[in-house]
Every structure is written in structure tokens, then in C-alpha cells.
Simulated assay, not measured.
Amino acid sequence: MTPAPAVREPRHVPLAHVIRDGLVEGVHHGSVVVLAADGRVEFEAGDPGVAFYPRSALKPVQAVGMLRAGLGLDGERLALAAASHSGEEAHVAGALGILSDAGLLRDDLRNPADLPYGAGVRDRWLSADRAPSRLAHNCSGKHAAMLATAHGRGWSLDNYLDPGHPLQKVIAETVEDLTGAPPAHVTADGCGAPLFSVSLYGLTRAVARIATARPGTHEARLAEAVRAHPHMVAGTDRDVTRLMRAVPGLIAKDGFEAVQIAALPDGRAVGVKIADGSDRARMPVTAAALAVAGVDPELLAPFAQTPVLGGGKVVGSIRATGPLALRAAA
């Protein structure tokens, strides 16, 4: 049996430079792994074998676990079950619809009440004097789907977030199956759901398995839903949604603390973790990793740099550096 990933301080390396007017103002460290279509490691940097928390990047794996436990969703609502959504009306209505179709109420949700995650949506929400809501929380789709799964199986609802709950046991088994190793540790994510520590290797292999799954499998159902409805996975203006729309067949998911995974239908996949949790370096590093995987750089150009501003003007950029940047440019 493959052992759980090691628990220790990660040995991250420089992955991105913050460049202001030609000078390196800052350096973002992290780890990255690129898998070839046959599953071998095409490129790696940092410490992708150490245990870490994937945060919301684990949601596609959790959604597969729910399908294995009997979740009956497809299409937009299944994509929403794997989402960190922006709180747009379609997201809120979708989460409420999942609950309503199962005969459940918004008060059955156990995720915290929150404002919408999307900046523009949040501003409009506040302008309308709307209070924080459990449905507006970016994880409400996942929680609604968890409740619907538990209800469909006749399992208890009040404790659906308990790691010992039958649903969470199925999800834990799915995490081990798709990543190839048991979790090193279990804690609570920001939304209250169980969070399993895995390796970046394992997480990337998991998304590759989802992206390449045979038609008719639970994994394929999820991949089809995500590809067809990328706006439900994040939001209209979110970079993850735009990336999936830009690269044909790509499935992708971000997570708090600057985690990103992405995979193509042929099995090529990338995993990224930025050590300091800074989201601004996540997409430039991901774009470079996808270029190493063979994605057309022209498709990735809008994601390859994050602008650095000075007085409202672009005076620099955040972009990949080191061996990753050299491989991406080759």
C-alpha cells in the first residue's frame, strides 16, 4: 500500500518574480508538477511530494465521492457541486434548487453565512443592503450536494460534516483512490467540511484521472459537467472560468492559499501550490506549467502575467521564473 505523504515543512523553490520597472521587487516560492499523458512526471520543481492542504482544489474529487455515494446531479448543478462560485444569481439559485429538489431547506446548510466571493457581485450585494447568506458562500453548491446525497441515502443530515459520517467516509475513500495514497491528516476547511491533506503529485494525478475517465463513469460525468459549464465552477469574470474557455477540453479548479490544478482530456495535467498563499502568482505559474505540458502559448498569453500597477498604470508584471519559465519558453 502506498504510504501517506510525508508531513514536514515543504522545500519550496522560487516560481514567480514580481517585477516593477525592471527590478525584482518580490519572489513567490512554491511547488509545481506537470504530468505527461502517460502519467509520468514531465516536470517538477519544489516539493510536490509533501503533504499539503489542497483546499477547494479538492472539490472535484469530493464531487466524485458524492456521485459514488449516489448523488443524482448532472449538468450545471453537478458543476456547482465542485465549485468555489462567485455568488452570482445562477450560483445561488442552483444551490437552492439542489436543496429544494431534495425537499431540503437553506437552513439545513452547515457552511457559514458569507458575502459573495466575486468582487463585483459582492459590491452589488452590499449596495442592495443584502445580508451575508449561507447560499452566497462560495461553497454552498458543495454543501447542498452533500446534503442531497445524504438525504438520498437516508443518512443523517445534522452531522453531514462529521468526518465519521457515512458520506464523508465515502469521500475519504475516493480521495485515497484517485490520489493513490491515504490522506496524511484530516482537518476542517474554511467552510467546515472535512479537508484531507494529500500531496501535489496525488492531487494532480486525481484530476488527470477525472479528465481521462471512460464515458459513463462517475469521473466522466463530473468532467463533462465542468467542461460544459465552466461558469458554474467559478464565475463569469474569474480566471479559472476564462482558462477553461480558452483551452479546449481543459478542466481546472483553484483553491484558497493559491492552489491550482488543471487537466486535459489526454491526461496531461498540472498542479501548482504557491507557498505564501498569494493568489496573484497562481495563474502565471499555472500558465507556464500548461505551456510545459504542451498547451499552445497563444491560448495561455492572457494568463501568463499579472500586471503590477503604479499610479494606476502598468509598470511591471508577475511572471514565472527559473527552470519552469525556461521550459515553458523552450
Score class of each variant (00 low, 15 high):
Glu89Ile: 01
Ile318Ser: 11
Asp177Asn: 09
His29Ser: 11
Ser197Val: 11
Gly141Lys: 02
Met1Val: 13
Leu23Cys: 08
Asp239Ile: 07
Leu99Thr: 14
Gly141Ala: 12
Ile171Gly: 10
Leu147Tyr: 00
Met66Glu: 00
Gly312Gln: 06
Glu25Tyr: 07
Gly216Trp: 02
Met232Phe: 00
Pro163Lys: 05
Val64Arg: 10
Asp101Ser: 15
Asp239Gly: 01
Ser84Ile: 01
Ala93Asp: 15
Val121Tyr: 10
Val314Tyr: 13
His231Asn: 09
Gly267Met: 12
Val7Trp: 06
Pro302Arg: 02
Val207Lys: 02
Pro215Tyr: 06
Ala325Gln: 11
Thr306Val: 07
Ala301Leu: 01
Thr306Ile: 04
Ala328Leu: 10
Arg227Ile: 10
Lys59His: 04
Met283Trp: 07
Val207Arg: 07
Gly316Tyr: 12
Ala228Thr: 09
Arg238Glu: 14
Val18Phe: 04
Pro48Asp: 07
Ala234Ser: 08
Ala258Tyr: 10
Ile210Ala: 09
Pro297Ala: 01
Ala262Leu: 03
Gln260Ile: 05
Ala16Asp: 12
Ser84Glu: 07
Arg205Lys: 05
Ala181Ser: 15
Ala320Met: 13
Leu78Gln: 04
Phe303Met: 10
Thr149Trp: 11
Tyr53Trp: 13
Gly94Ser: 12
Pro48Met: 11
Thr204Ile: 08
Leu324Trp: 09
Arg209Gln: 00
Arg110Gln: 12
Gly75Val: 03
His229Lys: 03
Ala287Asp: 07
Leu326Gly: 14
Gly72Phe: 01
Ala188His: 15
Thr204Glu: 09
Asp108Pro: 05
Val259Gly: 06
Asp108Ala: 15
Leu126Cys: 13
Ala252Ser: 13
Leu200Ala: 04
Ala57Thr: 03
Ala172Lys: 04
Ile98Gln: 05
Asp114Asn: 15
Phe52Thr: 00
Arg238Tyr: 08
Ala234Trp: 03
Pro194Ser: 10
Asp266Thr: 07
Leu200Pro: 06
Gly94Trp: 06
Gly249Lys: 13
Pro265Thr: 01
Ala213Pro: 01
Leu71Pro: 10
Arg106Met: 13
Ala258Trp: 00
Phe43Gln: 07
Thr149Pro: 11
Ala220Met: 00
Val295His: 02
Gly235Phe: 02
Gly180Gln: 07
Pro297Asn: 02
Ile171Thr: 05
Gly70Pro: 01
Lys313Phe: 14
Leu222Glu: 10
Asn111Arg: 01
Asp276Trp: 02
Lys253Cys: 00
Leu250Ala: 01
Ala258Arg: 06
Cys191Asp: 13
Arg327Asp: 12
Asp189Glu: 14
Gly75Cys: 00
Glu44His: 04
Ala145Asp: 10
Gly70Ala: 03
Glu42Trp: 04
Ala83Gly: 04
Ala325Thr: 13
Asp108Phe: 04
Val175Asp: 01
Phe303Ser: 00
Gly120Pro: 09
Ala136Gly: 14
Leu104Gly: 05
